[in-house]
Design a protein around this nucleic acid. Structure first.
Lengths: 252, 252
DNA sequence: ACGATACACGCATAAACGTGCAAGAACAGG
DNA sequence: CCTGTTCTTGCACGTTTATGCGTGTATCGT
């Protein structure tokens, strides 16, 4: 039984059963409870599960599905979120896209930070309810069930009435020629509208997205200030982008 | 059974049934009543439920200014929500206000119902993510932390662009002369804007609100089609309203 | 006012936890 | 092929936490 195997098994169990009881898993896999605890501790540190006395639970019922359906590297995602949150100046306004990475940014924002957050994700809005000094502006529109954000003409129109210093955008593809891409046309349009309303746009992209492209373009590189990623800064694609004036922020 | 699981179960039970009887839960989960009591004490300490003799009751998310609208009857709230959900015709559009009662309506909607829900509450929007056939339209605007809904000029303006067959509105005061009232001017304006966009407006009000009035008027009785309440239909205020053409729906 | 029930408190037991440690495997370099 | 290093794993230990029971007290309904 490889360590990585164990990890996968735990995550699988979490997705299937909705909980993990350390004792049971140890008995099932014929390993010590200590190892299970160690694994759970690591997974919890990466934000993949919530550690509780006796075992672990999914981070949040809704997020569990999302995490399952996209085999990302959420380990780096947390670091990306932290690096992105550090870009938010006190007193400034930031536009937060609705993806899972952006959601991590919302949680990474210091609770006492005095700022304005503009978002089209009701989930992010709800997450910021306990940030007393954060002003939240929610962009309305038709709710897209699969990504849990508002999109469509109404949402794009609502975006026209806001502006901010910073826009943090999640994408599914980061490609030197194709630019930034995503898999849904409406989402692409929405992201484009958001980026247009901010002075600076930074892209959040985990390592496995570098060099890939999806069907719908969000932005060309000219409109992007920087890229926040957990990939190796010496990755050829990243060096190419840096040469074209895109600031590369490595999140460790 | 993990401790955290128990906690979730209790909260879930609270949301679904509107109350918790310590003895019953202990029997159901095969644990001692002491454990249930301990859990309820902890949950109450975190403000997640209201401890009462024999069990616990839900507590409204907006606890702060609840001095006015205190002592809710969450038992009846569920019945009100069920009666209100029954008014939603398949294929129709309904405007759902953001209060706790309206939130209960969202949960009471059949998951397979084919309808359009328009709301200014991100919480309701999130709750409807798992209703595959429900189209959700979210009204954007500034997020009001204490009531967790969007309000303000932008939200009112967004409301101008929608229309629906039905509007379900929660209020804090139901008074024969003062009409429908609430404690916040912005919320009152928002509710007014919502009601104006629906052919029929029904009010959700638990028994203790009947006969009371708050500072800001939402609507006069002329603009209201009906009132859904768990109060006794023979209550003098209700009979007076019925005489003025307001349909009284008693929720048991 | 009364019995019945729910409660809080203290205590004992058991389970889960974290840490340090040692045996073993995997690996890199010579 | 050997050796030193690093990492993983399981065990032992003391500590923390959760749970159930008994007791006395408070609260409810009649």
């Amino acid at each position: 039984m490889l360590a990585a195997e164990r990890r996968d098994h735990l995550l699988d169990l979490l997705a299937r059963e909705g909980k993990i009881v350390a004792k049971d898993v140890a008995a099932e896999l014929r390993i010590s409870e200590d190892s299970v605890r160690r694994d759970l501790r690591d997974l919890a540190a990466e934000g993949l599960c919530q550690r509780v006395y006796g075992g672990a639970l999914p981070v949040s019922p809704a997020v569990a599905d999302l995490a399952a359906r996209q085999t990302l590297s959420p380990g780096g995602k947390r670091q990306i979120a932290a690096a992105a949150a550090a870009l938010v100046q006190p007193g400034s306004a930031v536009i937060l896209d609705g993806g899972t990475t952006a959601q991590a940014v919302a949680h990474a924002l210091p609770p006492g930070l005095d700022c304005t957050v503009i978002t089209h994700s009701p989930t992010i809005a709800a997450a910021l309810l306990d940030h007393p000094r954060a002003e939240v502006f929610l962009l309305g529109g038709r709710l897209f069930k699969h990504s849990a954000v508002t999109c469509g003409a109404a949402a794009v129109e609502a975006a026209q009435n806001v502006s901010a210093e910073l826009c943090l955008l999640g994408v599914t593809g980061v490609h030197p020629e194709a630019g930034l891409t995503t898999g849904d046309a409406e989402e692409a349009a929405m992201k484009r509208a958001l980026a247009a309303r901010a002075a600076d746009t930074y892209i959040l992209a985990s390592a496995e997205k570098i060099g890939t492209a999806s069907r719908f373009r969000v932005l060309p590189w000219e409109d992007v200030s920087g890229l926040i990623t957990d990939a190796d800064p010496h990755h050829p694609v990243l060096e190419q982008l840096a040469a074209r004036g895109v600031e590369i922020l490595a999140a460790q």
